[in-house]
């Protein structure tokens, strides 16, 4: 039996307190890239009660994604943004997910991200990561950006951390493990970097700005 919206909100209010839960549900979070990082970030935020998500990825679900990304075998071939929205709605039927099946770049970022309060950078390409972080910090200085760098391989989980680079720029990861080195991405380590990012989002919402 799917809970009513009132029951859903009540359960979150009971857990988080009304004041914090209202802040969570009124915050819009953009997730840029819906791979191992982005799909896990979105699921953590949806479970925590984030109601307004902007989901951006140009790609479709592929069999090579399933070892670390939050999609299912029966979603191969579907746009990641659509598939993730479906999966998030199974968790929280009342979540609003605005989806964009496009490649985010300097030309469309301002329009797509304009309503976001907090932006998660979750791309896999290093140049794309640098581009969106530079763009947001230069052109949208009122927003927070939570980026990721270095979460590949089987190195210790404890090397993945969150660093506050400047007032509105947080960086999660070990900052060195490149996907091209070694065995590539492993679900558990990507997931924990995504958890760092999602947790940083929730801490910003709670006005806990230090790491």
């Amino acid at each position: 039996m799917i809970p009513t919206k009132e029951e859903w909100i009540q359960a979150l209010n009971d857990r988080h307190g009304i004041e914090f839960q209202e802040k969570i549900s009124s915050t819009t979070v953009a997730v840029c890239g819906l791979g191992g990082l982005g799909s896990n970030i979105a699921i953590a935020l949806a479970r925590a009660g984030i109601e307004k998500l902007i989901l951006i990825d140009f790609d479709k679900v592929d069999i090579t994604n399933l070892h670390r990304q939050q999609y299912k075998a029966n979603q191969i071939g579907i746009s990641k943004a659509e598939a993730l929205k479906y999966n998030l709605k199974e968790i929280n039927p009342y979540l609003e997910a605005q989806i964009h099946t496009v490649r985010l770049d300097e030309n469309n970022a301002k329009d797509i991200l304009s309503n976001a309060d907090i932006i998660c950078e979750a791309f896999d390409n290093a140049e794309a990561k640098a581009n969106i972080v530079n763009f947001v910090l230069s052109e949208m200085p009122e927003k927070y950006i939570v980026a990721a760098s270095g979460m590949s391989g089987l190195d210790s989980a404890n090397l993945v951390k969150t660093r506050k680079v400047s007032k509105r720029f947080y960086l999660c990861g070990d900052e060195v493990s490149d996907v091209k080195d070694g065995i590539g991405l492993v679900s558990s380590r990507v997931m924990l970097c995504a958890a760092h990012q999602a947790h940083t989002v929730l801490r910003i919402i709670a006005n806990e700005f230090e790491v």
């Binding site: 290093a126 990561k129 972080v133 530079n134 400047s166 960086l171 900052e175 490149d178």
Partner: peptide, 26 residues
């Protein structure tokens, strides 16, 4: 943030504090 277009014209002064974040893929 130092916009990329200003990398050539932005000169470090004594006492400046700089953070360089270098992204890796993944």
């Amino acid at each position: 943030i130092v916009p990329k277009a200003q990398y050539a014209d932005t000169i470090f002064k004594d006492g400046d504090s700089v953070e360089v974040v270098s992204f890796v893929g993944g």
